[in-house]
Write a protein that binds this DNA or RNA. Structure first.
Length: 620
DNA sequence: GCCGTTTTCGGCCCGACTGTTTTCAGTCG
């Protein structure tokens, strides 16, 4: 049972408790626990075996720790079984519909015995909802609307997919006369890999004109609400967009507030309260007196904190680092000097070598690697040994045509099901840059998958592991290998883990990259572009890296060519470790070598997995 | 259900908007 599975069950326990009218703080405790579990890099299945490890997590006490242990051991917990027997799954799902919260869902279930979607729709159509307490004509109509919308809307959309439309909406509002500032806040600003809605923040201009411009945008199909300071709309794609018009003296406070995360805000509020102040979207106040509000920086400063980049605002220890002045200096797109994973028409790319190289030059890259597929991916026209040797000549010719960029002769070599690589060592030795990736056998058991990856990582010709977990957001689960062991092996072998910038990969995830960083891994951020356009995606990989707390120093392809090229051959010179080439025996934990860069060397800047001060977060 | 320099009880973040009410509960973020 993965952390995500456990988190989901805890979340549903919380909703069921809420529907039953339980103590709201008990509900919140379960929701908080779900969040904490989902953000742990280490699997719960590993943590349960360490005495007291669960209880050491802030927000997890004796009771929740036991529930997590039950879930790991049996896939369930007695309390959830009892709750499920009383409240069916589909009733829980009702709370996802706009306008239905726990109270109204409770009424539907208790008064009308509605147990599923079909029943809800039938009751609403028959006009049986509007007579219920807390319901009326309008709510009934909204339920029907929400049911129709929900079937067309999966809930979240990839950040990269919404990027252009989000900016178009912002520009539309920015064009209104007198508007001074427009920001896209929310999870969009935190650069989460998917966003559930968009939050626009506007200051300046006439509020009425701003609302008018916003609610009449061509992609708006439904105006959900329209007040003096706030409007909500639904777009034709199903996405909800909220706009808030705020005064300039409150803009920083509003930006902070609506950027979130909710958990980050709650921690900030606690700090304010402890100082006898109050923090809301209008500012930081002491009684009637406004202490700060115009910018985020002044609010953080007043609270005794360094400004925290939005990508880190997830209540994962960033506040303690900000207080201590030890926040990492996050990597930026401009730090990258290369893209080391891309395809051309020679395998399954859409553009030629020359087109890709020219596009890379236009992007300002100092060096790139052309990395076609290997032969296991026959459908992608993967290279065999002979084709690799021919390719070397083609790359050399390309170098002759393009003098103002360094081109590495690379390959994306398949990791076969048993951990063997798809090409032999002699062939790999021809290449300047070897990325290894999983493209098959995605559903192996954890021990098998772990042994497979550990074996592959020990090949001395390998430089990097591409899209390590193989997950596709929304459609394919990550390969179930043990990230802890893989990260330790990658660190000790000096193999970089990729953060793949493809919109639906973003693999490693922020949580995994954070764990890998703590184990001393280095990284590369690549596009895996299959066309010149896709080279633009690098920014999304950088966002993911920032969410993981990575600095430029953590990422190999930020190095200037002279240093990078000098570091490529290091592993090949070392004698081949024959014993290490065998896969570890299934089910047995593999001896973990110390990380290449010991954790202690890096603690000064790294965000702690569990901040030492977190248990006492109400201190200040 | 969690937490603790107020430590085993009594707190736990806060405001806008809607719709159902007739002063406010429910929902949402």
């Amino acid at each position: 049972m993965s952390n995500a599975d456990i988190a989901r069950i805890l979340e549903r326990i919380a909703i069921r408790l809420d529907i039953e009218g339980a103590n709201p703080f008990r509900v919140r405790a379960h929701k908080e626990a779900a969040r904490i579990v989902s953000e742990q890099g280490e699997p719960m299945s590993a943590m349960v075996s360490r005495e007291g490890a669960l209880e050491a997590l802030p927000g997890i006490g004796k009771d929740l720790a036991q529930k997590i242990r039950d879930l790991v051991a049996t896939g369930s917990t007695p309390m959830h079984d009892e709750l499920k027997a009383r409240i069916p799954d589909e009733v829980v799902d009702f709370t996802e519909l706009q306008g239905l919260g726990p109270k109204r869902v409770r009424t539907l279930f208790a008064e009308l015995q509605i147990r599923d979607r079909a029943g809800l729709e039938a009751a609403a159509k028959a006009g049986r909802l509007k007579g219920l307490p807390g319901f009326g004509e309008k709510v009934e109509q909204n339920v029907l609307k929400a049911l129709a919308t929900a079937s067309a809307w999966s809930g979240r959309v990839l950040l990269a997919r919404i990027w252009p439309l989000a900016h178009a909406l912002a520009e539309r509002v920015a064009a209104v006369k007198g508007v001074a500032q427009v920001e896209l806040a929310g999870s969009f600003r935190r650069r989460k890999e998917t966003v559930g809605d968009l939050d626009l923040l506007v200051c300046g201009g006439d509020a009425e004109s701003v609302m008018q411009a916003f609610t009449t945008h061509e992609s708006v199909t439904d105006v959900l609400g329209r007040g003096e300071t706030k409007s909500s709309v639904r777009l034709d794609t199903g996405l909800q967009v909220d706009l808030r018009h705020v005064p300039s003296e409150s803009f920083g406070a509003a930006l902070l507030y609506f950027t979130g995360s909710k958990e980050h805000n709650i921690e900030l509020r606690r700090i304010a309260i402890d100082k006898g102040w109050s923090l809301n979207e209008y500012g930081l106040t002491q009684g009637e007196k406004l202490l700060a509000g115009r910018t985020e920086e002044e609010i953080y400063a007043k609270l005794g904190l360094d400004w925290i980049a939005p990508e880190l605002r997830e209540a994962r220890g960033e506040i303690e680092l900000a207080r201590a002045g030890t926040l990492p200096k996050l990597i930026e797109l401009s730090d990258l000097r290369a893209d080391l994973h891309m395809h051309t028409t020679r395998s399954d790319g859409r553009d030629s070598i020359d087109a890709m190289v020219e596009a890379a030059i236009a992007r300002g890259h100092e060096y790139i690697a052309i990395t076609e597929h290997s032969k296991a991916l026959a459908m992608a026209n993967g290279f065999d040994a002979a084709r690799v040797r021919k390719s070397a000549i083609e790359i050399e010719a390309a170098r002759g045509r393009h003098k103002n960029i360094h081109i590495l002769h690379g390959l994306e070599v398949d990791i076969l099901a048993d951990g063997e690589l798809d090409l032999d060592d002699d062939t790999l030795n021809v290449l300047d840059w070897v990325v290894i990736s999983i493209h098959s056998a995605f559903t192996q058991a954890p021990e098998v998958a772990t042994a497979r990856v550990l074996r592959a990582l020990q090949n001395p010709f390998v430089h990097a592991m591409g899209h390590p977990t193989g997950r596709i957001i929304g459609s394919r689960e990550p390969v179930a290998f043990d990230m802890e062991q893989v990260a330790q092996m990658a660190a000790s072998e000096g193999v970089a883990l990729e953060i793949n910038s493809a919109a639906d990969r973003l693999d490693l995830s922020d949580v995994n990259a954070r764990l890998a960083r703590e184990r001393g891994c280095r990284f590369v951020i690549d596009t895996d572009a299959h066309s010149t356009n896709a080279l633009e995606n690098l920014r999304f990989g950088v966002f993911q890296a920032r969410r993981a707390g990575l600095t430029a120093a953590d990422v190999w392809n930020t190095q200037p060519w002279s240093r990078f090229s000098g570091s490529l051959g290091a592993r090949r010179k070392a004698p081949r470790k024959t014993a290490a080439a065998r896969p570890a025996s299934a089910g047995k934990s593999v001896a973990t070598k110390p990380a290449a860069r010991p954790a202690a060397e890096r603690t000064a800047k790294k965000p702690a997995a569990k901040p030492p001060a977190a248990k006492a977060r109400r201190n200040s």
